[in-house]
Every structure is written in C-alpha cells, then in structure tokens.
Computed example of a mutant assay.
Amino acid sequence: MTKPAFLLTVHGTPGPQGSKTRNAAGALYESSAKVKPWREAVKSAALDVLAYDTAWLPLNEAVRLDLTFTLLRPKSHFGTGRNAGQLKPSAPKFPTGKPDTDKLIRSTQDALKDAGVLRDDSVVTAVSAAKVFPLTGSDSLSHPGAVIRVWRLNASSKETEQ
C-alpha cells in the first residue's frame, strides 16, 4: 500500500471560496466570511507539518487530493426538551446543504498552494471529496475540520514500496 506524500488534519470550520460580491464602490470581495479563517487554518496546519521536513519542495507533478470535510450538524437535527442532544430519526445522514463541495475544494487547494505543499493548484489532476457530519465514518472528525491527503500520481515503484 502506498503512503500519501502529505497527510494533514485541519481543525476549524471549512469555508467555501468562489462566490464574490460587489460593494457600493464596485470592489469585489468574498461573500463567505469563513473562507479567510479556513484558508489560514489549512495554511498554518500545513506549515506546522512542513516544519519537520526541511527537504520538502512544493509538489510540481500530478497529484490527487483526498479531502473529507467534517461539518457541524444544524440544531434542527436534534430534539428539544427531554430529547435535547439526541439526534432526530429524521436527521439526514449526509450534509446536503451549503457549503458546496467544489467551493470547499477550491479554498483548500489555494491554501495548500500558499503553504508550499503544491507549486500551483493546477498540478491537482484528480480529487476525491466528501462532506460528513462528526463521527459518522472514516475520516470524519469529532468537530469541524478536514482530513487532507495528497498523493503523487507519478510516484516511482521504490517510493510506493516504502
């Protein structure tokens, strides 16, 4: 089994990137207030990991990203009164509302580039992404955040045997 070139767990609320809004003066700005803190959380966590690898160079080859975003359940998924804190039977198993998965991918890729994990987000040739609720399966966290794996697609056979 091969190992990812880079493995990272990020804690914080995933923020989508992509939608822009114009203010009265005509300037564009991100419509999500969560994107900047999320990108900073990803960048900071990546820089912490890279601090232990002094030989790391930004990946400049084809890579695949595996991303699992853990999002908080809305309060409406839980009961009230004596059932407070208990998940309603009607609560959905998967998060189907906002934020959009593609916008979460975009903000995360940009943060990985800013941290020096990737030379550019254009080297990402394949992506597997999921949105999950806390503690609902593989790679889901107990709180908001993400598990990020970066795989080299052109790895030599010696690298994959390690």
Results as ranks from 00 to 15, higher is better:
residue 8 L to V: 01
residue 9 T to D: 10
residue 9 T to Y: 03
residue 11 H to N: 13
residue 12 G to D: 08
residue 12 G to R: 04
residue 12 G to H: 08
residue 12 G to A: 03
residue 15 G to E: 01
residue 16 P to W: 04
residue 16 P to M: 00
residue 16 P to N: 02
residue 17 Q to S: 14
residue 17 Q to W: 14
residue 17 Q to F: 13
residue 19 S to T: 15
residue 19 S to K: 15
residue 20 K to N: 07
residue 20 K to E: 10
residue 20 K to G: 01
residue 21 T to L: 13
residue 21 T to P: 00
residue 21 T to W: 09
residue 22 R to H: 12
residue 22 R to I: 02
residue 22 R to E: 11
residue 22 R to W: 03
residue 23 N to E: 15
residue 23 N to D: 15
residue 24 A to H: 10
residue 24 A to Q: 13
residue 26 G to A: 05
residue 26 G to S: 08
residue 26 G to M: 05
residue 27 A to F: 11
residue 27 A to V: 10
residue 27 A to L: 13
residue 28 L to D: 11
residue 29 Y to G: 06
residue 29 Y to L: 08
residue 29 Y to F: 15
residue 29 Y to C: 04
residue 30 E to T: 01
residue 30 E to C: 00
residue 30 E to V: 00
residue 30 E to M: 00
residue 31 S to K: 14
residue 32 S to P: 01
residue 33 A to T: 08
residue 33 A to L: 02
residue 34 K to D: 15
residue 34 K to H: 08
residue 34 K to G: 05
residue 34 K to I: 02
residue 36 K to S: 13
residue 37 P to K: 06
residue 37 P to A: 09
residue 38 W to V: 04
residue 39 R to D: 01
residue 39 R to I: 00
residue 39 R to Y: 02
residue 39 R to W: 05
residue 40 E to L: 11
residue 40 E to Q: 12
residue 41 A to D: 06
residue 41 A to M: 01
residue 41 A to W: 04
residue 41 A to Y: 03
residue 42 V to R: 00
residue 42 V to T: 06
residue 42 V to E: 05
residue 42 V to N: 05
residue 42 V to F: 03
residue 43 K to F: 00
residue 43 K to G: 07
residue 43 K to C: 06
residue 44 S to L: 12
residue 44 S to T: 14
residue 44 S to N: 11
residue 45 A to H: 11
residue 46 A to K: 02
residue 47 L to I: 05
residue 47 L to P: 00
residue 48 D to R: 06
residue 48 D to W: 01
residue 50 L to Y: 04
residue 50 L to Q: 04
residue 50 L to P: 01
residue 50 L to M: 09
residue 50 L to D: 09
residue 51 A to E: 15
residue 51 A to I: 01
residue 52 Y to K: 08
residue 52 Y to V: 01
residue 52 Y to F: 12
residue 52 Y to I: 00
residue 52 Y to N: 10
residue 52 Y to D: 13
residue 53 D to R: 09
residue 54 T to A: 15
residue 54 T to M: 12
residue 54 T to F: 09
residue 54 T to P: 11
residue 54 T to G: 07
residue 54 T to S: 12
residue 54 T to D: 15
residue 55 A to I: 08
residue 55 A to M: 03
residue 55 A to H: 13
residue 55 A to D: 13
residue 55 A to T: 12
residue 56 W to L: 01
residue 56 W to M: 06
residue 56 W to S: 09
residue 57 L to S: 14
residue 58 P to F: 12
residue 58 P to S: 10
residue 59 L to Y: 02
residue 59 L to I: 09
residue 59 L to D: 08
residue 60 N to F: 14
residue 61 E to F: 10
residue 61 E to M: 12
residue 61 E to N: 11
residue 62 A to P: 14
residue 62 A to H: 14
residue 63 V to M: 09
residue 64 R to M: 15
residue 66 D to G: 14
residue 68 T to A: 08
residue 69 F to M: 03
residue 69 F to Y: 15
residue 69 F to L: 11
residue 70 T to P: 00
residue 70 T to D: 07
residue 70 T to A: 10
residue 71 L to K: 05
residue 71 L to C: 06
residue 72 L to K: 12
residue 72 L to M: 13
residue 72 L to P: 14
residue 72 L to A: 15
residue 73 R to Q: 15
residue 73 R to K: 13
residue 73 R to Y: 06
residue 73 R to L: 05
residue 74 P to Y: 09
residue 74 P to W: 10
residue 74 P to G: 02
residue 74 P to D: 11
